[in-house]
Amino acid sequence: MPLGVYVQLLASGLSTGSIYALVGLGLMLAFKGTGVLNFAQGELVTLGAYTALFLSLTTSLPYWAIFILTILVAGVVGIVFERLLVRPLMRAPEFTVVVATLAVGLMIKDALRIAWQESVSSIPSPFADVSVRFGDISINAQYLWVTFCALAIMGMLALFFNNNLAGKAMRAVAQNQTAARLMGIRVNRVFSATFALSSAIAALAGILIAPIHGIEPEMGNVLMKGFVAAVLGGFNSLVGCVIAAFMLGVIETFGGAFFGGLFKDVTAFALLILVLLVRPNGLFGSAEARRV
C-alpha cells in the first residue's frame, strides 16, 4: 500500500480514538466527581447529536451557532439528569445507580428510535468536504478537527483540575464529601456542575462524530469503547485515557483495514484483556487511585 493510505488510516484512527477519548473523559469526570458510573453517557452522545440535528433542521443557524447551542443545551440536560436521577439515588448502593443510568439510557435510545424511525441522518459540517493536503497526501479536515477538539478538551480539563479552585473543589468532593462541606464547598452544586460538564463533553462527541458516522439511535453504543479507553488509561488519568483511546482507535482502524470490519471490536477488547492481564490498574493508573 502507498504511504498515503497509511497516513489516511492513521488520521481516521486518531479521529475515531478522539471520539472514544471524549466519551471516556465524560465517564471519568462523572465518576471522579460523584462516584457514579454513568451508563447513559453513550445516550448523552446520541442526544447531543440529535439536538444538533434538530437545530439544523428547524433553524438556519450556521454550524458554529449550532455547535455552541447544542453544548449549552447538553449542559442543561446534564443538570436535569443529575437532579432527577443521580441525586435522589445518592444514598442508594452504587449498583442501583448504575442500573438506573443504564435504564435511562435505554429509554432515551428507544424514544429516539420511535421519533426518528431509525433513519440515518447527518448535520452539515464546514470540515466534512474539505481536504488538507500534505504533499501528495490528503486528509479529511473533519478528522483533524475531531482530533484537535479531543486534545483541546483534555488540555482544558487538566488546567481546570490542576489550576482552578473550582476544579480542585471538584476533586475534593470526590475524595471526601464531609471534609469538602466543612470547607464550605456546596457539594450539590459541584454535582450539578460535574454532570453539566460531562454531558456537554458527550454532546461535543455527538456533534463531531455525526458527519463521519451519521446520526442514528444506536450511536450511543460508543459508550463501550469510551469505557475501554478509560479503563485502559487507568480511570484516573486524563492523559492516560486519551492516549489509550488513540491507541484503540488506531489499532481498530488498521485491524479493520487489514482483516475486515468484523475485527474492529475484537481488537478493542483483546487489547483491553491483554493490558489488564499485565497491568491490572491500566496503562497509566496507579494503585492509590482505587476508591476507598
Binding site: K168, A179, A180, M183, G184, I185
Partner: peptide, 23 residues
C-alpha cells in the same frame, strides 16, 4: 473533624487552598 479528613490525593498546598475556599 476526627480522623483529620484530608484530601489524600491533593497536595499539601492544594489542601491549604481549599481551606480558604469560603468567601
Amino acid at each position: 473533624p476526627q480522623g483529620r479528613m484530608l484530601f489524600p490525593d491533593l497536595t499539601i498546598e492544594e489542601n491549604l487552598q481549599l481551606g480558604s475556599y469560603r468567601s
